[in-house]
Design a protein around this nucleic acid. Structure first.
Lengths: 354, 354
DNA sequence: TTGAAAGCGCTAACAT
DNA sequence: ATGTTAGCGCTTTCAA
């Protein structure tokens, strides 16, 4: 690999002239000089060493991306969008980290980013509170938190980009209600707060608006502490069995996310119940897989591409100017109707029993 | 962030002494000196700047990982394993890149790695030939190619880590044959060669061994050139429709991978056919999602964790010593029987007709 | 046992 | 318009 010195020598100019052309200051020199430098660069196939540049400027040209597990299709989908935007629109590469819900791994990732001089990081955290993010900010990181709202009242030093989770749950709930369902369940995973309470709020609001509070249940599934990629789906499977055994079984169930919905459908099937004939199921996320499962899953889709643009832009903006205030950015989801939701059987009878 | 200078000042020693403790040369100094340095490091929370270190040593402490699309669950699963091994066993971070089957994106990734000083890269390529990998090696990269065999005869300068694809297809085919199937189809995607021909070979061999060559068909699905994450599944869906319309419809079909199997099952359902009652389907990959789909997919599982260990170890080994010869590492897959394969209906009748 | 000093490749202020 | 030079933070001879 040739260096800026080699280029200078070939072009018979000083290194600072070469540096000037590298950094877009071509105006500071003669046409002929510029041409000579460019020719030398091309001839040698010279590309500046970023470590050296970084040592001087402090810019690493990379972003960190922290996810619970990249094997989870939802995070894979998010990562894909973020990597594309970072690369194509800003020339930034992304360093990936899996946390497996381990605070130590999360802290270790921040530590490594700092050592590598990477100052911007996108965090899709599963951790309960965000104090560790504020600590990361103290250490010099610029962070964007995805899919978590800022804690009310606290003016955070990290950006928050998320979808309107209450609205997403409301959309899902109304879809079920619109199809005639009156006994509803919202299934979620306890402890994994990612926007969970907002969704429960939206679910409750929609039930209340339809006068269905009495028949609305929230199921907080408990999961083993170890992190597995199939964990969410396994949880759904287990909860489906429990739901199926209920005397007053819900006819429509909303899953906190698509993965859980897949598990729910598998569990319902294990219990001998058909979706949507016996129970309707609706998810939230809009994974492309949802179009493929049997039956195709009705779900509430998140606008990931638009979110990715905002995420990266916030990071780049605040990296360039630390003075930019942090903010909260909310995106609107949309309902995608497929096959997993249908009218409940014997609506009248169910109502009479209730 | 404090520097090695700050530590030296605090400990009242020279920077070289601090550097010595950082690099495990504690033997070169007095007990008391070492203690002072360690205390200063702890007090300041000092961590060496990697860009500076890299400028000196040429070691970036990172690995590149190139995948067609991280939104594809298979690559997500592989990425998860590789990131874990790299991080936990070698302290290496991973830089992720999506190619979307675009040679320019692939070349751009190599270019950026080089500029960043990252010298090791894991490539899960979708490109036809591997000459671009050899070119990357010329430029100074150490590359491990995953899930492609070395071209026979050429002694490649890149390592190849893959699963025994012929065996995987053989296992899948024998599973179908074992259940009594006699009219078989192997469905794949044309042009996406990832180990495709090896699988076809395994399929053919198993069919021949059972005297079923005449009834074995290979379907090379054509897909639009644009890359989409759902592409593989969509292809399966389309091919399923075509298969369903066949006069002599196969009773058992092998999908080149699990994603395609999902699409196949969705398409079969669209055509009014039930799996496994009307058609049995088997995949290759062993994604965790396969346990969740309806019916649960019988599939041939790849030993990803073991493969990840080899992949990273090869990279690290050849990064440390460029003299280590490259090699080919083959892993054995295992069959996982679930619900998507059953005995064909009216075996005798089908046979009579054939 | 410890320290001084020369870079690694680049940027940018400051000369000329 | 172009060149000289002082670092950025670290590693590693080589000397003392």
């Amino acid at each position: 690999m040739s260096t800026i010195q080699d280029v200078a020598r070939h072009a018979r100019v000083s290194v600072s002239t070469v540096s000037n052309v590298l950094n877009g200051r071509a105006d500071r020199m003669g046409r002929e000089t510029l041409a000579r430098v460019e020719a030398a660069i091309a001839l040698l196939g010279f590309r500046p060493n970023r470590a050296a540049r970084q040592l001087k400027t402090g810019q690493a040209g990379m972003l960190g991306l922290l996810v619970p597990s990249i094997a989870n299709p939802m995070y894979g989908a998010v990562a894909r969008e973020i990597e594309s935007v970072a690369q194509e629109r800003h020339g930034l590469r992304v360093v990936l980290g899996n946390t497996y819900r381990d605070p130590d791994k999360e802290a270790g990732f921040f530590q490594d980013l700092l050592e590598h001089g990477v100052r911007g990081v996108v965090v899709i955290s599963s951790l309960q509170d965000e104090r560790h993010l504020e600590r990361a900010v103290d250490r010099g990181l610029v962070v964007v938190s995805v899919d978590r709202r800022a804690s009310p009242g606290s003016d955070s030093r990290v950006d928050h980009v998320s979808v309107d989770n209450a609205e997403a749950a409301r959309l899902a709930t109304e879809c079920l209600i619109g199809h005639g369902h009156q006994r509803l369940a919202f299934v979620t995973a306890a402890g994994q707060t990612m926007s969970r309470s907002e969704k429960i709020r939206g679910f409750r609001a929609a039930c209340a608006a339809a006068g269905l509070e009495a028949d609305a249940m929230v199921v907080d599934g408990h999961t083993r502490s170890e992190y597995g990629d199939a964990e969410m789906a396994e949880l759904g499977r287990a909860e489906a069995l429990r739901l199926a055994a209920l005397r007053q079984r819900p006819t429509g169930v909303i899953a906190v996310n698509d993965m859980l919905a897949y598990g729910l459908m598998a569990g319902l099937r294990d219990a001998g119940l058909a979706v949507p004939r016996d129970v309707s199921v609706i998810g939230i996320d809009g994974l492309f897989l949802s179009a493929l499962v049997t039956p195709a899953l009705t779900t509430v889709q998140l606008p990931l591409p638009a979110m990715a643009v905002t995420i990266v832009e916030r990071l780049v903006g605040r990296l360039a100017d630390a003075g930019v205030p942090t903010g909260e950015f909310l995106f609107q989801p949309t309902l995608i109707e497929r096959e997993s939701v249908a009218a409940p059987r014997r609506v009248g009878a169910a109502r009479a029993r209730a």
